[in-house]
Simulated scan of single mutants.
Amino acid sequence: MAEVATSATPDQLLVVIDPVAREADGESVRIAKDVLGAGAARMKLCLPEGPEEFARALRRRGSRRPVVVGDDRALLRAVAVLHRQRELAACALAVVPVGADLGLVRSLGVPAGAVAAARAALDGTERRLDLLVDDSDGVVLGAVGIPPLDGPEAEGERAPKVPVRSWVRTCRSLVRTLTAARPVRSARSVPLAGPGPARLRVEVDGRMLVDLDQPVAGVSLAPGDAGLAEVEVRPVSVGAEASPLTAAGRAVTVSGAHFRYRADAMVSGPVRTRTWVVREGAWGLRLPG
Rank of each mutant, 00 (worst) to 15 (best):
R201C: 13
L245S: 13
A114P: 14
R106I: 08
G62H: 07
R207C: 01
A92R: 04
L228A: 06
V216A: 11
G151V: 06
A143I: 10
P66N: 13
L36D: 10
G109I: 02
G249F: 03
P215L: 07
M208A: 06
P152C: 00
E280Q: 14
T125I: 03
L82I: 08
L88F: 15
A78F: 02
K33G: 10
R86V: 10
V168C: 12
R279V: 01
A94I: 10
G218V: 11
V238C: 05
G99Q: 08
E232H: 08
D11T: 08
R286L: 14
A217D: 15
D130L: 01
A38K: 15
D71K: 01
T170A: 02
P160H: 06
V110A: 02
D34W: 09
A78C: 08
R169S: 03
L47S: 13
A40L: 12
L45C: 06
L178P: 02
V20P: 05
M1F: 12
L122P: 00
R106P: 08
S237L: 09
R73A: 09
A114K: 00
A198W: 05
R86G: 09
L108Y: 04
L178A: 15
A90V: 04
F259H: 14
A100S: 14
V267S: 08
V81Y: 11
E49N: 07
M266G: 03
D18G: 07
E280G: 02
V236K: 13
A242E: 14
G142I: 06
P288G: 04
G109M: 09
G256K: 02
R172K: 11
A198T: 05
D213H: 14
S268G: 05
A121H: 09
R199C: 10
P223K: 02
L88H: 12
L149E: 13
L93D: 04
V231H: 11
P148F: 08
W167N: 14
G113D: 15
E27F: 11
D264R: 09
L108P: 00
T9G: 13
L75R: 00
L75Q: 07
R22C: 03
C91K: 12
P244Y: 13
A78W: 00
S189M: 04
V67L: 06
L174S: 07
L93S: 11
R119F: 07
R279G: 09
R201I: 02
A263W: 00
A226W: 06
D123F: 04
E23Y: 10
L141Q: 15
A40I: 05
E87K: 13
L76H: 10
G124N: 05
W283M: 03
P235T: 06
R207N: 03
R250G: 15
G109K: 00
A282H: 01
L228Q: 07
L102G: 09
R274P: 04
V68W: 02
R60M: 11
A257F: 04
V16P: 01
E241P: 07
A247D: 11
L45I: 11
V69N: 00
I31L: 14
E3R: 14
L13D: 12
